[in-house]
């Protein structure tokens, strides 16, 4: 028996979300009285022994030439092969773009119940009960996974990585896989590296129609630069072309859960809130004291954004200089 945690490394570094998943998986293993085994299929030079610090008893590196490039079918077959060899009763992945492509496949392949976007450790006192957000964050559902094998796709930023242990042994295992990729990644168009990717950003500065026009975004970008935040926008602003579509956060755009979300001149329509209501702290700046967003905010400033935002930028500059 074991808990298997699928991890990813990028540019020679283990992803933070994978450290979260190993921390989570080792706690699940402890609750079940078994060991946590971490798996990586494309380490790219990352030091995987470090995963031991986050609770993995052992790290397996799956080797096969077909793993150099991502294909959901191939990766699923590889993870399932390792899961069988270590007798995994629980498989943990991260609910990011790779996890969303792999975890459902793994669930169907192993006939293992899946909770995608889990936010809590399983409650084993009432079965194997895991919570996730539903209705775009407006409610939570508590699921019992009743199958013998279980798959949990962990929501990024739901748990914090905890490094208490010591380095683990890393074992390379040749995999058969047995399927060949039917997809080919022809190219990856990288986002410009000086910008922070929105779904991964821990700090986000976002603005809406209250900015009156695209020419006024300078003060928003100044604030984002000083805070070290990614920039985002509301749907109307993306639809009228003031800002690029990839910045649109909300129900039909990107759903984010940063530590800090600063909303400037956004009224807070229910569809917008659905994409940001998992943020840890929300600051709303709006001239309309009746804006619905204030009900969802932790901190509010009522007033003219064109005066307040530059003042806030100055205040952040002062803070940064002192810390």
């Amino acid at each position: 028996m074991s808990v298997l945690i699928f991890t990813e490394a990028v540019n020679g570094k283990i992803k933070k979300s994978s450290l979260e998943a190993v921390t989570y998986g080792s706690k699940v293993a402890a609750a079940l009285g078994t060991q946590a085994v971490a798996l990586n299929l494309n380490p790219g030079g990352a030091d995987l022994s470090e995963l031991g610090k986050y609770g993995a008893s052992k790290v397996i590196v799956g080797k096969n030439a077909s793993l150099a490039s991502f294909d959901s079918q191939v990766y699923t077959a590889a993870i399932a092969e390792v899961a069988a060899s270590v007798g995994a009763t629980v498989v943990v992945t991260v609910n990011d773009s790779l996890g969303k492509a792999v975890a459902p496949r793994l669930s169907a392949r192993l006939k293992a119940g899946l909770v995608a976007g889990a936010t809590t450790l399983p409650n084993t006192a009432i079965g194997f009960n895991v919570t996730k957000n539903v209705f775009s964050g407006k409610a939570k559902a508590h699921y019992n996974i009743v199958s013998a094998v279980k798959v949990i796709s962990l929501m990024p930023n739901a748990v914090q990585p905890e490094a208490n242990g010591s380095a683990a042994s890393v074992e390379e295992v040749n995999l058969n896989i047995g399927v060949s990729a039917k997809t080919v990644i022809k190219e990856v168009k990288r986002a410009s590296t000086d910008k922070i990717a929105l779904p991964e950003a821990e700090l986000v500065v976002s603005a809406g129609r209250g900015m009156k026009g695209p020419e006024n975004w300078g003060i928003v970008e100044d604030l984002a630069n000083v805070v070290g935040a990614a920039t985002a926008c509301s749907r109307p602003v993306a639809d009228i072309g003031w800002r690029p579509h990839h910045e649109h956060v909300g129900q039909t755009g990107v759903a984010i859960r940063p530590n800090l979300y600063i909303a400037i001149g956004i009224s807070g329509a229910i569809q917008h809130l659905a994409g940001v209501n998992q943020s840890k702290t929300i600051v709303v700046i709006n001239k309309d004291p009746e804006a619905p967003f204030f009900k969802a905010a932790d901190y509010g400033v009522v007033g003219d954004a064109f005066e307040i935002v530059p003042r806030l930028t100055e205040a952040f500059k002062k803070y940064k200089a002192g810390h």
Binding site: A139, A141, G300, V301
Partner: peptide, 24 residues
């Protein structure tokens, strides 16, 4: 493979703390 045992609503957010626009 899975069953929803119950639903719940998110914890109520405490009231917004308003900050003076002059005190960023």
């Amino acid at each position: 493979l899975t069953e929803v045992t119950s639903f719940s609503l998110p914890d109520a957010k405490s009231a917004v703390k308003l900050i003076s626009p002059d005190n960023m």
